[in-house]
Structure formats: C-alpha cells, structure tokens
C-alpha cells in the first residue's frame, strides 16, 4: 500500500511536470503565440481591442449634432467628479424654453476609465474612445470640452 502511494506520487509528479514542459516547449517553438507588440514601431498598424477604454468622447454627426440632452446623469454617476456639465436655457421655436448643454467639461486627469458615465447615459451621447496617447506637458491641456463649438442637439433626442 505504501509503495503504491510512493510510486503513485512519483508518477503524478513526473506527469504534471512534463505537461508543464510540453506547454513551455510549445510556446518556445511557436513564436506566433507571442503576445508582446513592439509598440512605438507598430503605431501605423496598431489597433486596440473593442473593449479598451481610453477616454470619453462625444460623437458628432456630419451636421455637427450630438445626442446630449444635458440631463447630467453622467455627472451624477461619475465617482470622482471628472465630468462637469454647464447647461443653458435654449428658446425653442414654439416659445418654450428647453434645457441644453453649453459646455461638457471632461477632466481626463481625474478619469479612471470606469465606464460608469457611458452606462448611465440615457441617450447614448458619450462613449469610450480607443486612443491612449494622452501625455502632455501641461496639466491644463487635459481639461477637455467634449461638445464641438456651435454644435446642437440632434433632432428627436429627448
């Protein structure tokens, strides 16, 4: 009984060690498995994966229209005050006043890319971009205004 256990241990050990060596040997002989990329050299062909979160952007269409209603759900959802929305009252053609955004301020230096603002947004106005080269020499350049100058809200977005 003891001998059976003893040699059983040896058998199991050798088997598991050989399994490990088989895997590393496979990786050694198959350089196509290499995950590392030579980053600054492959900048031209570099594509980030879909779920990569680089920074918050607000997409605008060809008429310079965005989908942001100024509801400030993203500002409330943000855990560290990255987003600051300044709203204004806009006069509608029918005489009524409507809330709209004046500036959508985004502090990239405070953002942790947690994606909560994008989840909170009811009208899909903001999304995560895949750019990641954000370093600048002055901190002030990290404060961004996301809505383009002169842009207005898209028709039909409430």
């Amino acid at each position: 009984m003891f001998l059976k256990e003893y040699f059983g241990t040896i058998y199991k050990t050798v088997k598991s060690l050989l399994t490990g060596m088989k895997l590393t040997g496979y990786y050694f002989t198959h350089p196509k498995e290499i995950q590392t990329e030579e980053y600054p050299d492959n900048r031209a062909t570099l594509t980030m994966f879909d779920r990569f979160k680089g920074e918050v952007v607000m997409p605008h269409d060809e008429n310079n229209e965005h989908r942001c209603t100024g509801c400030q759900a993203c500002e409330i959802a943000c855990p560290n005050g990255t987003i600051k929305i300044i709203t204004k009252q806009e006069l509608q053609p029918d005489g009524k006043k409507k809330k709209a955004i004046d500036t959508f301020v985004y502090h990239l230096e405070l953002c942790t890319m947690c994606n909560l603002c994008v989840v909170a947004c009811p009208s899909d106005a903001i999304k995560m971009a895949q750019t990641f080269e954000h370093s600048v020499y002055d901190k002030k350049q990290l404060k961004k205004v996301l809505n383009n100058p002169g842009s207005k809200i898209m028709e039909g977005v409430e």
């Binding site: 990786y27 050694f28 290499i34 030579e38």
Partner: peptide, 13 residues
C-alpha cells in the same frame, strides 16, 4: 531569450 519565448514575450530586442 528562452525565458521570453516561453513566457510568450519577445525578450531583449
């Protein structure tokens, strides 16, 4: 280099 290839890296280059 052996370490790098076994860990799916490139190693010194």
């Amino acid at each position: 280099k052996v370490a790098a290839f076994m860990q799916i890296r490139l190693g010194p280059n």
